[in-house]
Design a protein around this nucleic acid. Sequence first.
DNA 1: ATGTGC
Length: 485
Amino acid sequence: MAFPHDIKKISPTVWELPVHYKEGMLVPARIYATEKLLMAMDEGVFEQVSNVACLPGILKYAFCMPDGHWGYGFPIGGVAAMDPVTGVISPGGIGFDINCGMRLVLTNLTHEEVAPRIHELVDALFNRIPTGVGCKGFIKVSQSEFRDVLEEGSKWCLKKGFARPEDIEVTEEGGCFAGAESSSISDKAIERGIDQIGTLGSGNHYCEIQVAKDVNVFDEIIAKKFGFTVPNQVVVMFHCGSRGFGHQVATDYLKLFLQVMGSKYKINIRDRELACAPFHSKEGQLYFSAMKCAVNMAFANRQVILYRIREVFSRIFSKSPEDLGMDMIYDVAHNTAKLETHIINGATKEILVHRKGSTRAFGPVMEGIPSVYREIGQPVIIGGSMETGSYLLAGLETGAETFYTTAHGSGRTMSRHEAKKNVRGKKLQQDMEARGIYVRTDSWGGLAEEAGSAYKNIDEIAESTELAGLSRRVVKLVPIGNIKG
DNA sequence: ATGTGC
């Protein structure tokens, strides 16, 4: 399959594959990107996003965000809303790492204060936050208590003293998707997840110390409202998900859906990786519940990691986390499906929005945004590579086009395999150190896979979401320290 | 992403 030269330009940042592009498409597919980013996209994106447009019950368009690239079934960067009555739910539209997401935490420290302590700080974070494949957490819970975590998410952390009430307020959905029933979870998933609370994992998961340099502030008023009050202010950003637990949930239900999809529900799909079930079916509802359990496990995971981050800063700087101003700005989920109310063809309707490697970006005054941000729009965290920086943005009214969804990261340009061939982890660490970024890792190969050169330009991604009206830039954050698995 | 694979 080749680059689709008949792709239609809707605007400088929106490109459309019409319904006749491929047999079976129910709606057109739309890709949000500048021409430059579009040309750099792998052909798998066009193949996959047009496959998604064939899924039963899909509404308006199958979307792909500017950081899109080839994924399992859906592209990473994919968005698809289904009619909950006639439509399907698809694990491929959510991802294996259910509720992989980003959390951003303020400090009131300046770059000048942190720079002399950066080695000590990063080493302490590396020691206190378990990283790498198969890493285990410090929290021991019984099976029944783990089931509470799955059903309560961040609220469980609040009960146990790992969270502040304000943390919950600035976590998407209050850190808990309602309706998670742990009866939908296999014993194997419980077994894999039970000792993984408070662990970072591997791959592109990381915890980073960043600086909001004054020259990188795009919108001073919003930046101030988000809590940026100190020159060259230091923040902590981290990225992780539901670990082996979410992976097992996805595996379990993909298997079940493949068994019932054709025989019981007579659904024909173009790609086995798009395995799905009617949303209202028994299997669809079981998966929806299990997915929520994984979402909640990931919220709890990030909350416990935050608890450890606060501990480390407190020890290194000999002040309480409160005195260090370690308030959360926000926590966004990347890989979820959620029932939300949107306007479809002029009518208000509850729809099932799949977001896979994409970020919810509610505009100002919408319900579901914490009251402190109600007038500004939802904070959006776009994580770049560990070399190049990340962005804090805010949702916009014009995001309605994509069901209020924007990009989530840089997007790979090089496969993990290719990156490992081209980059040496140890050398990369030394090069980064020379540029003022101190990085600790569990795996040199893993570090090489995450090299900045393996990713698209984050500045172009962030700018393109703004040009498209999906989110506006508030501040660019550059790394000075990073731990990764 | 993942006790990195049937």
